[in-house]
Design a protein around this nucleic acid. Structure first.
Lengths: 348, 348
DNA sequence: TAAGAGAACTTAATCGATTTAGTCGCGTAA
DNA sequence: TTACGCGACTAAATCGATTAAGTTCTCTTA
């Protein structure tokens, strides 16, 4: 086992001072050509790399971004992380990932931990519990210490930070409009209770689309389930009843899971997708792509979201500290991925 | 914006020396009760937390685990990370995640970067390119510097490190045996070329199962595709032909994607799952769970794998440096999750 | 020839913490 | 009265790097 090289060990070996070594390696003109070459050759030979921790301490800069997300076993978050990582790497930043598991306490703990020198800034999507509690002291503390924060997806108001959001409303509208254009007239939506912001926004988009085409909304065609991340037996039953009891020709769901179950129910009723009923869901993940029939989906572009969040954060980190504080809100566009679960729109 | 407290600022404020503050906060008996209380009260009031970077530098220990994986938009890796994070958090470790994107250069770069002080050890699954190149100098260098390494899933031989593996062979055997017990006699396997180790091992498990039940293997019933992570049009076609041209009553696939496509093909042929053909796949992810019909799958327990890898690494990190070096290989057991794609086994 | 310039280094401070090795004053014992 | 011990601190070294502020020594120039 060989010890890592340090400036000190190189200096000792070559019989010069530490600062000479440091300056030589950084091409300072203060050091003679000869000495510089000698030191550089030695450093190269033994593969010297400065210690990141020491640099961080000295520079008061870690070049590390802290990412805090509610869960990682989740396709969307995973794509966002992928985007963050790409952007970070290109700008020489590391990414530390912490999971809050949707728990307030863990979110606070993780933030405090990382805030004590481990990271220069944060990218986070707040946990469900935090949203319910509406306690954001940990965010404010971190921001107060001068660390920039970028929130994505699940954002809250009243925090001095940048935001990157999916345009949920426009996305849902896009999906529902597509169904209408393809001939659907009686479209139901399977969404969440309004207190889940994405559910509310997507429902609004749905209503908007109907309105645009002069279709009257009907409360009976709106099914609000209470958990958007999971599919309980009770929810399954409600989806079954919803589809069985309404004579729909289209169903829009706010996530893949609801759609997959809807597809199953429609299938069981002996109806054909998309001939009898069209199906479109929000979120373009594995399920939409590989389901049978594959599902037309509103794609969220998580990767782009991650890249954008990282780029905003890095920008803040690299810009002058005393610059005027302005906080932006960026909407990431969605796009519609057409697959087997919808009919083609015949264009004029 | 308020600056973070440091020992120095506290010392100045209270008119004592830095070391007095440090000692007081660490309950040293050298400091008088009175002074200690005063300092602790002040620190608590202003929420003093020591700077991690300074501690890392001083202790030559970062309490951070570096995780390097080929890709993150992948359910299995995601579950492993989840396990790693759980175990790490419980032991007060942070997790830095880097993606190699299956590229050798990125893997090397990331490792070198993290090795310069950012982490105490590594958990990694080597990239495809690294396996092909068989160039492991970056691993050896890191190990040579005394950093423990734990490899998981995609491991290579000849490296001084611990290994955590899925018992691919036993898992496949479990799945195939189940099909046989449920009545299947002509079972095909859709696997990868042998140079992909998981493909090879799972094929071996398949053969083992047949052998156990005295069923003769038939090379025509083994389809080897060249990419396990993706499903090219060419591969789709080959799966179609494979299923159409062989009169199978069971299909085992080494991943979900192959199974989903197989299911589609079987469906298109007008055959019923599981009545006409049973279907079992390796990897229990979203697709198996939500496909229609849902798929019986060999579950890999990624979370357990992550936990185990982290626990081994942390153990190495916490144990005396000069302890005898012994490297373990741990197999994580698989389990069979029975779903709609197989018939029930009538037990005696 | 002595001062000044400049080349080529070294010293030392700094980042924020820990810890070993002093220091200082006071009380007690020989 | 001196010396020793002890309580309660402080000073300084250390981790590994950077960098402002010295220090030498040589060479130039008035």
């Amino acid at each position: 086992m060989k010890r890592k090289l340090t400036l000190k060990s190189i200096a000792k070996e070559l019989g010069v001072s530490i600062s000479t070594v440091s300056k030589a390696l950084r091409d300072s003109p203060e050091i003679s050509e000869e000495t510089r070459e000698k030191i550089k050759a030695y450093a190269k030979l033994y593969n010297y790399k400065p210690n990141n921790i020491a640099l961080s301490l000295k520079n008061r800069k870690t070049n590390t971004i802290g990412v805090i997300i509610p869960q990682i076993v989740h396709h969307f978050f995973t794509t966002v992380i992928y985007g963050i990582e790409q952007e970070a790497r290109e700008n020489n930043y590391n990414v530390i990932i912490c999971l809050s598991n949707n728990a307030f306490d863990k979110e606070v703990l993780n933030m405090e931990l990382l805030a004590n020198g481990s990271t220069d800034g944060f990218i986070l999507s707040v946990s469900k519990e935090t949203m319910m509690k509406e306690d954001y002291h940990h965010l404010n503390e971190v921001i107060d210490q001068g660390m920039p924060v970028v929130m994505f997806d699940r954002v809250v108001e009243g925090i001095q930070c940048d935001r990157v959001l999916i345009d949920d409303k426009a996305g849902a509208k896009k999906g529902v409009s597509h169904m209408i254009r393809s001939g659907c007239r009686k479209i139901g939506i399977i969404t969440s209770e309004d207190y889940v912001s994405v559910g509310r926004l997507r429902t609004e988009g749905y209503l908007d689309a109907l309105d645009d085409f002069g279709i009257k909304a009907d409360d009976n065609l709106i099914l609000k389930l209470d958990n958007i991340d999971d599919l309980s037996d009770k929810s399954k039953k409600r989806i079954e009843d919803f589809i069985t009891n309404n004579d729909l020709d289209g169903v829009f769901t706010v996530n893949e899971l609801f759609a997959v179950h809807a597809s199953r129910v429609i299938n069981a009723l002996g109806k054909k997708i998309p001939d009898d009923i069209s199906l479109v869901c929000f979120t373009d993940g594995q399920l939409s792509e590989h389901a049978v029939p594959s599902l037309t989906a509103v794609s969220q572009h998580g990767e782009e979201m991650g890249r954008k969040a990282a780029s905003i954060l890095i920008n803040k980190l690299e810009s002058a500290e005393d610059e005027e504080e302005e906080y932006s809100t960026t909407y990431i566009d969605t796009s519609l991925v057409e697959r087997e679960s919808t009919k083609e729109v015949t264009r004029r």
